[in-house]
Design a protein around this nucleic acid. Sequence first.
DNA 1: CGATTTGGTTAGTGTTCGTTAACCGAATCT
DNA 2: AGATTCGGTTAACGAACACTAACCAAATCG
Lengths: 204, 204
Amino acid sequence: MTRPPTERGRAKADRHDALLREAARLFAERGFHGVSLEDIGAAVGVSGPAVYRHFAGKQALLGALLTAVSERLLAGGSAVVAAHTDPREQLRGLVAFHVDFALADSDVIRVQDRDLASLGDADRRTVRRLQREYAELWVGALAADAPDADPEELRTRAYACFGLINSTPHSVRRRAGRPSDAAVRRLLTGMALAALGVDEAEVS
Amino acid sequence: MTRPPTERGRAKADRHDALLREAARLFAERGFHGVSLEDIGAAVGVSGPAVYRHFAGKQALLGALLTAVSERLLAGGSAVVAAHTDPREQLRGLVAFHVDFALADSDVIRVQDRDLASLGDADRRTVRRLQREYAELWVGALAADAPDADPEELRTRAYACFGLINSTPHSVRRRAGRPSDAAVRRLLTGMALAALGVDEAEVS
DNA sequence: CGATTTGGTTAGTGTTCGTTAACCGAATCT
DNA sequence: AGATTCGGTTAACGAACACTAACCAAATCG
């Protein structure tokens, strides 16, 4: 899975990554159907059908993008949960992880809950499954913290928390005098934990 | 502004409303660029270019949709704020109003923060202005409640709260065994108020 | 070094879609 | 009742776009 040592191999891998990055930016800005392959190619300095040398098509590009982000979310969330035994510690970790992710990868976060319906059937099933598993990490921690609660209610609670944290892409669009990333991180973390009813302080 | 008493006038007004309603549903489902005028016409039992008898074009339809919803939000929010003097009461009222709105008009809520970029310049400016004014209602109440806070931080706080409440369209998609609307309303209201640091209890 | 692979190019193809044109029949107006 | 308005129809146009074809030059390989 590592990159081939040849010059062409490295160049190809770089372009592959650049395509994913620029596609995410453009999709976040104008939506999947609002961006043409010509646009995506132009954003990385090649034009039009060259994208087919890297992806099977436009839908496949979106599939690669969303599958990758879902997998990163699930892997990161799983690591956080595994690192703690106390459910409240798990929730604090999940919130911190998700806030960092949303701040760092706001483009891809935006695309994920906006253009999921544009995926092909197979990719959509995969992404939905990964998203569900990620949400179940949250539901599991919430259930361990409040064993009597209805799991469906906890699920709604988790999604509401995602909505709160994922609001950054909408709100923190480069406007003058906006709070710093660090300030936004603190703010969102505090609000999310309050919404979940978890004390913010680190415990023994 | 009332409907003309003639048969044709009523029929036209009805179709106009039906077009807005069905367009909202389709846009929410597949995005502005993912829906054709043929689709929209078909959804109200009329086919294709008949839509032009009611709206100047596809973009104009979206404009009418989003302008109307922004105006309803601003009007409702203004009424809530005017009805109370205590800032915490205002915030409780704003949260309750917004939750009701998001549950009743989830389609239009979804379109509003998804396809705003597909508007024409004039409509986009109008909608943005109305949205900003609505947000300022929240910022004003928050500022009155915490006079020392940075207004930019309060703005981010308000948007995070919108994200939390607006999560319903994403999460409460008709799945079996989901909580009732009343349960979701209670849950979101409680989480939003907790995130804002406002006590949930009604005061004297 | 010659053969081949490969990531790029431009030109073309078929389709979808927003929009316009031309027309029609029924409701409305005088 | 006759003239007109108007909301609908189908047909056609033009642009945008995903994708394919044909070709090319440089890197890789034997």
